[in-house]
């Protein structure tokens, strides 16, 4: 096992909420540059897994290592984000009162502590990078638009754009196509593949068509641990997966 080579390494992670085991000895390895799809029925622990990786929820037991060395269980959300892990929520979460431009500016890799942000001026390079990202996430011309006024799909993309601006090494994406039209879904799959060229991605998704379109390794979560892993064809053929998830 080349643990040191893994980008993200989860070993025997357990999280309990009032006696309910949301995660039960979950182990998972993500390689650098990999895109992984996580599927599983409701309550399988997908979102809790994301919460543990990003520091929102503390694990009762187990290790979570980033780049082989950094123990994520000891850090808070902001520190983990600074390490290079970005997260997109299930419901699009952007800053509703800020313009598209400001949303991206806040996400842009750069100073995060109090005094530098108090004094930081806007640099030309930043402006340039924000224009590029707006191009990528198809929000060109909307720089001054207030984020709260965007459509649902546009918000999803703005949030992905913010993640791009953050320039993380690993991106966690929770149900990116929920509520999107077919065309938007296809475009999103395209976008994620594009993003995956430069960084690792973990996608949690219910939409099987979308997962098929992504065409990446799939982990099936069930009752807080990994039930099966492999290509979508491989896991779809697994009788246990059929039993708990796909079959009925």
């Amino acid at each position: 096992m080349s643990l040191t080579g893994a980008l993200l390494y989860l070993n025997d992670v357990t999280v309990t909420f009032d006696g309910f085991r949301a995660l039960n000895g979950l182990s998972l390895v993500i390689e650098p540059g990999e895109m992984r799809a996580i599927i599983g029925p409701n309550g399988a622990g997908k979102t809790t897994m994301m919460d543990v990786i990003t520091g929102k929820t503390r694990a009762d037991r187990g290790e979570v290592l980033f780049e082989g060395a950094r123990d994520l269980t000891r850090l808070d959300e902001a520190e983990i984000a600074e390490l290079g892990i970005g997260r997109k929520f299930q419901r699009p979460t952007v800053f509703d009162h800020h313009s598209v431009f400001d949303n991206l500016l806040l996400a842009l890799k750069g100073p995060r502590s109090v005094w530098p942000t108090l004094l930081a001026p806007l640099r030309g390079a930043e402006r340039q990078r924000i224009r590029e990202i707006m191009e990528i996430v198809r929000l060109r011309g909307l720089a001054a638009e207030i984020a709260g006024n965007l459509s649902h799909g546009q918000k999803q993309w703005l949030e992905i754009g913010m993640l791009l601006a953050q320039d993380p090494k690993l991106m966690l994406v929770d149900e990116p196509v929920a509520g999107m039209t077919d065309a938007e879904t296809a475009a999103t799959a395209e976008l994620l593949r594009e993003i995956n060229r430069t960084r690792s991605v973990i996608v949690v998704e219910h939409d099987m068509a979308f997962v098929r379109e992504l065409d990446v390794k799939v982990s099936v979560l069930h009752e807080g641990s990994v039930l099966a892993e492999g290509s979508l064809e491989h896991v779809s053929a697994d009788p246990r997966v059929i039993e708990v998830y796909l079959g009925r």
Binding site: F17, D18, F20
Partner: peptide, 8 residues
Amino acid sequence: ALKGRAFE
């Protein structure tokens, strides 16, 4: 306190 994801 009730602990849990739903609560947070």
